[in-house]
Design a protein around this nucleic acid. Structure first.
Length: 388
DNA sequence: GTAGGGTTAG
């Protein structure tokens, strides 16, 4: 028995040599290193280590630690950091405060976020943006717009980040007028040139009302980011215009635009809807070539695409070939079996979930209850398997 | 010049 190399290396902590252990600079650089590798657990472990040695991160690494806490939903760790720096100079740093506001919002603690936000006397645009987009991120769109209004009263000029958050809120609330005003403001202040994300947000905003307007914005863009391509293709897909979505995808290929896993995902979904098995298989080939097939979102979409195009066999083959399946993948395969009327297979897959000790979710339960309806002794089985 | 916030997704 041997630990696989990849695991061993991932787990290997970057141990400083004895002379460096108390040097904060060294520890801060380790955190930055983990940040580059997007290793959130590494960041948190390093921080815990520092804490035990009585070393405090500086104002440039503390935000990184808080960000990791938010992504890992490590609420207690984040709160502990907050209380640790409560009476230090760090809490007066606007960057640290912004990171705290962001952390609290992302974890859903708005009272705490508002508290940290409100205490600060000299608030700049980024701090406001963190609070505003914090609201937007959790669906509190009215509050976001209200805060934006307040911001105007403090004579702060909104930045492109403010506009992105605002466009998202306006889209969700179907505030066409206000969104158009934002559009105008961005034009007058050159915010489109300043940041491509503003245009992408604008495309997303108009998608709520009329794809054709989004397309006009898209066509006028000087340089289209991959995200804007994806948004536009998805926009056509969402209104059911699969052929236009495919056309745009083809144009991407012809123009030689480098696409990503989101593009693959949407293209596969379009194929599933459009009923094009041949094209779907070609995209599958492309995904394998470009190594997007290991992406769980892409694999899941492929699995569904095959089943929707009538090929249970291809779905099953794909499912069994995947080594790292997540619960969504299991759920999809069970649904596929149900769709083909293979209730026994669906049930045996569910039993595999149980025996392989995979954590099922509420979707698994909902799907399985529908299987129980179909089986002769379903009621008994449903009661036996379901958590009470 | 840089940091703290913001766009697409099963």
């Amino acid at each position: 028995m041997e630990i696989p190399a990849c695991v061993a290396f991932q787990r290997l902590p970057l141990l400083p040599n004895k002379t460096q252990t108390k040097d904060p600079k060294h520890w801060n650089s380790i955190i930055k290193h983990h940040t580059k590798l997007k290793n959130d657990t590494g960041i948190l472990t390093t921080y815990t280590h520092m804490e035990s040695l009585g070393i405090c991160p500086d104002n440039s690494t503390l935000p990184l630690v808080l960000k990791a806490c938010a992504r890992l939903n490590a609420v207690e760790s984040g709160k502990k950091i907050h209380s640790h720096i409560q009476n230090t100079k760090l809490i007066e740093d606007v960057r640290v405060r912004t990171a705290l506001v962001d952390f609290y919002c992302k974890c859903g603690f708005f009272e705490e976020a508002l508290h940290v936000f409100g205490e600060m006397s000299e608030r700049d645009v980024v701090l406001w943006n963190a609070m505003i987009s914090g609201y937007v991120g959790r669906g509190h769109h009215e509050e976001a717009i209200g805060l934006f209004m307040k911001m105007g009263r403090e004579n702060l000029r909104p930045s492109s980040g403010t506009m992105v958050a605002l466009l998202l809120a306006c889209g969700e609330l179907l505030e066409l007028r206000m969104g158009k005003e934002v559009h105008g403001y961005c034009l007058r202040n050159g915010l489109f040139e300043a940041d491509p994300r503003v245009i992408t947000a604008l495309i997303g905003f108009y998608l709520r009302f009329d794809v054709r307007v989004s397309r006009l914005v898209f066509d006028m863009m000087d340089s289209r980011s991959i995200v804007s391509w994806n948004a536009m293709i998805r926009g056509y897909f969402d209104v059911g215009d699969c052929s236009e979505a495919l056309k745009l995808f083809m144009q991407m290929l012809v123009d030689g635009v480098t696409f990503d896993s989101v593009t693959m995902l949407v293209a596969i979904q379009v194929c599933a809807e459009f009923g094009s098995l041949k094209l779907g298989m070609q995209i599958h080939q492309m995904a394998i070539k470009l190594e997007f097939n290991n992406d769980l979102f892409v694999a899941n979409a492929l699995l569904r695409m095959y089943s929707e195009n009538g090929s249970l066999e291809f779905s099953r083959e794909l499912f069994e070939s995947i080594t790292t399946r997540d619960i969504a993948m299991w759920n999809s395969m069970i649904s596929v079996y149900i769709g083909f009327g293979c209730y026994e297979e669906a049930l045996s897959l569910f039993i595999r979930i149980r025996t392989e000790c995979i954590r099922e979710d509420e979707i698994t339960i909902a799907i399985m209850l529908s299987v129980c309806e179909q089986l002769a002794d379903g009621l008994r089985m449903g009661k036996a398997y379901m958590p009470m």
